[in-house]
Simulated assay, not measured.
Amino acid sequence: MHPETHLALHNARAAELRAEADAYRLAAAARRPQDIRTRLGWTLVEAGLRLVAIPKTATAVP
């Protein structure tokens, strides 16, 4: 392949990847508050399940 052709294809692909990354970054920034709330909610659920699942110590019967 001719070097200038290779360079032109490389530049075109790099521009496509940059545009795709920018679109992904904008989409991620738009949904970030929901993700934080979701993570916090699942963390609270996990903490509650751990509290419920704590094994009880056996009590001595006289």
Rank of each mutant, 00 (worst) to 15 (best):
M1V: 10
M1C: 06
M1T: 08
H2I: 12
H2S: 13
P3Q: 07
P3I: 05
E4A: 08
E4Y: 10
T5P: 01
H6V: 04
H6W: 02
H6T: 01
H6G: 05
H6F: 00
H6Q: 03
L7Y: 08
L7Q: 13
L7S: 11
A8G: 10
A8S: 05
N11Q: 06
N11C: 02
A12S: 12
A12M: 09
A12K: 02
R13L: 09
A14H: 08
A14R: 04
A15Y: 05
A15N: 15
A15P: 11
E16T: 04
L17S: 14
R18L: 08
A19N: 13
A19P: 08
A19W: 02
A19M: 11
E20T: 01
E20C: 12
E20W: 08
E20N: 14
A21D: 12
D22M: 13
D22K: 15
D22W: 11
D22N: 14
Y24K: 08
R25L: 15
R25T: 15
R25F: 06
A28Y: 14
A28V: 13
A29V: 11
A29D: 15
A29W: 01
R31I: 13
R32E: 14
R32F: 08
R32Y: 02
P33S: 09
P33R: 10
P33T: 07
Q34K: 11
Q34C: 04
D35S: 04
D35I: 10
I36V: 15
I36P: 03
R37A: 10
R37E: 02
R37L: 11
T38W: 00
T38E: 05
R39N: 05
R39A: 06
R39S: 03
L40R: 10
L40E: 09
L40I: 00
L40C: 00
G41Y: 08
W42F: 11
W42R: 09
W42Q: 07
T43A: 03
T43C: 00
V45H: 07
V45K: 08
V45A: 11
E46V: 03
E46R: 03
E46A: 10
G48L: 00
L49C: 09
R50P: 05
R50S: 04
R50V: 07
L51H: 04
L51D: 01
V52L: 13
V52W: 11
A53C: 03
A53K: 02
I54M: 01
P55R: 01
P55D: 07
P55W: 06
P55Y: 02
T57Q: 00
T57K: 02
T57Y: 03
A58M: 12
A58C: 10
T59C: 12
A60T: 09
V61K: 15
P62D: 10
P62M: 05
